[in-house]
Structures are given as structure tokens and as C-alpha cells.
Simulated assay, not measured.
Amino acid sequence: MLVDNDTFLSQLTALFESSKEKGTIWLTHKRLTYDGEDATIADGEGSDDAREYPCLLRVTDSGKAKFSTKVEFGDLLRFHAAYGTLLKASMATLRKRDKKREKLHAEQAARRKKRMTAPVVLDGAKRGKGRRTRQRQVKAVIKQQESQQKAKEREEAQRKVESTIW
């Protein structure tokens, strides 16, 4: 549903208020082109294209609310000032990160890494009373070697990605 700019901002404010505790809001902002026009952007040098395109802003929150507005080029600075203020105000009310949970996940990852690097001792009889214990230890050694190999492969892949970026 296409609404005017002021209605869009007021509805967006109400949507941010309603989804303060729980919910997701998707915002889309793009240049509006019309059907039948050439949608390509000319180069900066020697471009004779002096057309001014309006912007289209869309908001949705997984189907319940869906609305959009068209902002003309002349109104863009005024609209963006109000829109930016609204976004800053709504970002300030977001929930803080759960640092306890993040710390718990980091500790669990450290324990997994330590367990992966700690050597598994093979003791017990190959036959007789300690056979099952030894079989479990052998499986643990094999699993540890596989996980170390996967970790090496991940590190190498990460290094390749980093080297291509830089």
C-alpha cells in the first residue's frame, strides 16, 4: 500500500513500538525506475542523463504490515533527516546483547578446542577385560585426528580467502 511520506513515518514509528519486545522489520530503500525506461546508469564522464529519480521505501514485518512510500528527489533531504532520526531513536531501544550466553558459547568452544588438542592415551588390554575401554580410546583417537584434519582444512581455506581479499 503506497502512502505519503508523513503517514509512512508515523506508521513506521507505530511498527517499531509494536515490535519492541519481539519481531523483525524489513526496510528496503531503492531507486524507483519506471517500466519501459532504460534502467542502466550511465558513466560519470560524458553522461547526458540529468533525470532525477524518486526513491521507493518499503516496510514489512513478515506479512502483517506492508506499506511503502515514494520520495521525490526534491524532498529527499528533508525526508532522510526525519527518517534517520526515527531509525536512531528505534535503534536505541533495541535489546542489549546477552553477554552471559556469548561467554558460555566461547567457553564451550575453548573446551572443545582443548579436548581436540589433548592427546588420548591408549591403555588397556587388546584382549580380555580392558578390550572395550581400548576400543573406545581408539575410536576417540580416530575422531580426534579427523577433527584436527578438518580444522587444518578450515584454517587453510580461511587463509586463502584472506589472501585473496588483501
Rank of each mutant, 00 (worst) to 15 (best):
R51D: 10
S47H: 02
E153T: 11
L76K: 10
S68C: 11
S10C: 02
K70I: 15
V3S: 07
R111D: 00
L77W: 03
Y34E: 14
Q148R: 08
M116N: 00
A157M: 10
E102A: 14
Q144L: 04
F8H: 07
Y83Q: 06
A65L: 02
R154W: 05
T40F: 09
E146Y: 02
T7P: 07
F8T: 07
G63V: 05
Q11C: 07
A106P: 03
T7D: 12
E107H: 03
R115W: 00
E102Q: 12
A110I: 00
I165P: 01
K96E: 07
H105K: 14
D75T: 06
D49P: 02
S90F: 03
Q108E: 00
R131S: 11
R78M: 05
A125P: 01
D61H: 08
L2D: 12
A109C: 00
Q144A: 10
V161E: 15
R111Y: 00
R95S: 08
G44H: 11
V71R: 10
A125R: 10
K139Y: 01
R127W: 11
I142F: 04
K20N: 10
T117H: 01
K88M: 07
D49Q: 03
K64A: 04
Q149S: 12
L87E: 05
V141N: 05
S62E: 09
Y83H: 13
Y53F: 15
G74A: 12
C55I: 06
T93A: 09
D35T: 10
K70Y: 02
K66N: 14
A50C: 05
D38P: 03
D98K: 09
K96F: 08
T93C: 03
S19N: 14
R115E: 04
K88L: 13
S47G: 13
V138S: 04
H29S: 03
E162N: 14
T60L: 04
L32Q: 15
Y83D: 03
A125D: 14
E102C: 04
K64M: 05
R78Q: 09
M91Q: 09
K64C: 01
R31E: 15
S18K: 13
K114F: 00
F79T: 12
D98G: 04
